[in-house]
Design a protein around this nucleic acid. Structure first.
Length: 252
DNA sequence: AATGTCCCCAACCGCCGCAGC
DNA sequence: GGCTGCGGCGGTTGGGGACAT
């Protein structure tokens, strides 16, 4: 039944959603599916965008630092995943929630002792050793992410074949000129249709970006007027990303 | 090779807060 | 103040891959 399918999103649906958001921006999730030619609910479209298609999503495994951050903030905040996600740039609340239930919940239970979080999480060498543990105890595989096996030291950022382009190429036509951004970001790494960051210290870059003051999306990107939305409502865009009219890589 | 079980993750559901009328 | 619609959040679950038998 349209709008209620639990089936996974197919590449064509992703393409339609990305193309629509690229062209018109985000204004009204409930009307977007029809306008974009999708048979999903508005909530489903929003979730797909927020948790998967957003260009600043950091995919891949969690570093030891990430795990310690999650454990620390969960101890302070409880199951307020969105607030915990705010402490981990590029991570979604859904991803953190899943990771918590899959990997960290048991650690948290054990954390009632005087053992430090670092000791519970273990060193990277411990994790590697655990990967090779023939006992098959997957509870020990804290950093394992079999779907992204080649991390090449990028601390959780995918490193499959990429096209490199200068950050200036991406934001040159925008008014996103806050100096710290350009000072810190060396270049984007574009992996097919998603954009990720590259640097000798990727986490530092992401942190820097997310610490930038919010700026109006309309300052840097002027989506076309979608006939479905005749009313000139204020574009409600994701504020942390420098959008650019030349984001052709959003679309296959 | 076939089958069963476990586990992870993407997706959905229900609730709540907020804004507009 | 009440109603309605929307977006956001946390809890839950179905699908499918990995692994064991």
């Amino acid at each position: 039944m349209p709008g209620t399918s639990r089936a996974s999103w197919c590449p064509e649906e992703d393409r339609k959603l990305k193309a629509y958001i690229k062209q018109y921006g985000i204004r009204n999730w409930s009307k977007m599916p029809q306008a974009a030619g999708l048979t999903r609910s508005g909530k489903s479209c929003r979730l797909r965008w927020m948790n998967y298609l957003r260009p600043d999503i950091k995919r891949g495994n969690f570093s030891q630092e990430d795990q310690e951050t999650i454990l620390k903030w969960h101890e302070l905040l409880g199951n307020r995943w969105s607030e915990i996600a705010a402490k981990l740039p590029g991570r979604t609340d859904n991803e953190i929630k899943n990771y918590w239930h899959a990997h960290l919940k048991k650690l948290s239970k054990n954390n009632s002792s005087s053992t430090t979080i670092s000791e519970l999480v273990g060193t990277s060498e411990d994790v590697e050793a655990n990967k090779n543990d023939s006992s098959g105890n997957q509870d020990l595989l804290l950093c394992d992410s079999p779907k992204v096996p080649n991390m090449d030291g990028f601390n959780g950022i995918q490193t499959s074949p990429q096209i490199y382009m200068s950050i200036n190429d991406v934001i040159s036509s925008s008014s996103c000129t806050d100096p710290p951004v350009e000072d810190v970001i060396n270049q984007y790494m574009i992996d097919q249709d998603e954009i990720i960051f590259s640097s000798s210290n990727a986490s530092e870059i992401n942190q820097s970006i997310w610490e930038q003051p919010y700026f109006s999306f309309e300052d840097i990107y002027m989506p076309e007027t979608d006939p479905v939305f005749m009313a000139s409502t204020t574009a409600h865009m994701y504020p942390d990303v420098c959008y650019d009219a030349g984001y052709d890589f959003w679309v296959d």
